[in-house]
Design a protein around this nucleic acid. Structure first.
Length: 186
DNA sequence: CTCTAGATAAACT
DNA sequence: GTTTATCTAGAGT
């Protein structure tokens, strides 16, 4: 079982190799980033607001935000004010529908904006739960080797190694820097 | 490979 | 009113 109520980096690691589905589309999670409560790069840094309200919902909630005015990004909420951004997945379920939503553009799920588009999420999904209804999460079953590196596309706290990826996976949003290997999952 | 335009919600001054 | 933001597609070198 996946534990949502734990340190956010732990949740980000546990989500690698897990399977995530949104209304029948999705697949294995390949890449995540952790965002903490007192993390200058996090939307929750300045406290609760209309935009980030879902980040303060119960662990296991859905947090969706609009990035750069055009990209919807999906997050898994952990403890209050903490969340994990889903950056890349392996297309496994509902591939035809995802391809249609991406209008034939490939890749389907490599990158947070592409993932949001392929899964068909919207701001209206904020506050929903990963409870198996519309949003489902199945924990990883086997041990996997993990890549660790700095987060992408942020300006503050850019040095924290809070980005995680599945080793040997193709379909990551970007390659990890060298030295990223060597952390086995439990 | 690098560069740039594009899109809009919310925080900030 | 202005700026920034957890990016991407498409054009250019």
């Amino acid at each position: 079982m996946l534990i949502f109520d734990q340190e956010i980096t732990g949740l980000a690691r546990d989500l690698i190799g897990a399977r995530l589905f949104v209304r029948g589309t999705g697949g294995m999670v390949l890449e995540t980033e952790a965002y903490g409560r007192n993390d200058p790069a996090s939307h929750s840094f300045r406290g609760p607001s209309t935009r980030n309200a879902a980040m303060f919902g119960p662990p296991g909630s859905v947090y969706v935000y609009l990035s750069y005015g055009c990209h919807l990004c999906l997050n898994v909420v952990g403890r209050a004010g903490e969340a994990v951004l889903i950056r890349a997945m392996l297309p496994e379920a509902g591939v035809a529908l995802m391809r249609e939503r991406r209008r034939g553009g490939a890749p389907l799920l490599a990158g947070p904006g592409r993932t949001g588009q392929a899964l068909g999420i919207g701001l209206a999904d904020n506050g929903k739960r990963f409870d198996g209804a519309e949003f489902t999460l199945e924990s990883r079953t086997e041990a996997r080797e993990l890549l660790v590196g700095p987060r992408i596309g942020i300006t503050r706290a850019a040095d924290l190694p809070w980005r995680f990826g599945l080793a040997e996976a193709s379909g990551l949003s970007r390659a990890f820097p060298a030295q990223a290997r060597g952390n086995n999952l439990a």
